[in-house]
Computed example of a mutant assay.
Amino acid sequence: MTYLLMSLPFLGVGVVVFAIGGAHARRRGAVRRYFSSWAAATVALLVLTAVFDNVMMAAGFFDYGSEQISGLRLGLMPVEDFLYPLAGALLLSGVWQLLSGPRETRGHGDG
């Protein structure tokens, strides 16, 4: 089994939860904030993954079997390694949105 095939179910669940979270954000009028927060978190996770995976692979902590990857690499890391942080960002953003309750607005006189 390849790393791409192993990642697809997690990515699929992440996409579904993210879409449900997007519908929830739309009802609350927070779509722009939802997508911009997800994008910022995703970019940060992808950059950190690229840096630290390459450092750990260069240090010899781990490597991937060539039979289980597509062969496309960014530095030393296979591109399939980006699917894990992407799936995590999708899933966690959706869950965060679904678990957030209605926002209460406070006036200046409230304590």
Rank of each mutant, 00 (worst) to 15 (best):
M1A: 12
Y3D: 07
Y3W: 12
L4N: 02
M6H: 12
L8W: 09
L8C: 06
L11T: 09
L11H: 02
G12Y: 04
G12N: 04
V16P: 05
V17T: 00
F18T: 04
A19N: 01
G22K: 00
H24D: 11
H24I: 09
R27W: 12
R28C: 12
G29Y: 12
G29D: 08
A30V: 09
A30H: 06
A30M: 11
R32G: 14
Y34R: 05
F35P: 07
S36T: 15
S37H: 03
W38N: 00
A41F: 11
T42H: 05
T42C: 13
V43H: 05
V47K: 04
V47W: 00
T49M: 10
V51D: 04
D53R: 01
D53N: 06
D53H: 08
V55I: 15
V55S: 10
M56S: 14
M57V: 14
A58N: 07
A59E: 11
G60Y: 13
G60H: 09
F61R: 08
G65A: 15
S66P: 04
S66A: 15
E67M: 13
Q68A: 15
I69R: 00
S70K: 01
G71D: 08
L72V: 15
L72F: 14
R73W: 10
L74G: 03
L74K: 03
G75D: 03
P78C: 10
E80A: 09
F82M: 02
P85H: 05
L86Y: 02
L86I: 14
G88W: 08
A89R: 02
A89S: 09
L90D: 05
L91Y: 06
L91Q: 00
G94M: 05
Q97H: 04
Q97R: 04
L98D: 01
S100H: 01
P102V: 14
E104Q: 12
G107Y: 07
G107T: 10
H108G: 09
H108N: 03
G109T: 14
G109M: 10
G111T: 13
G111M: 05
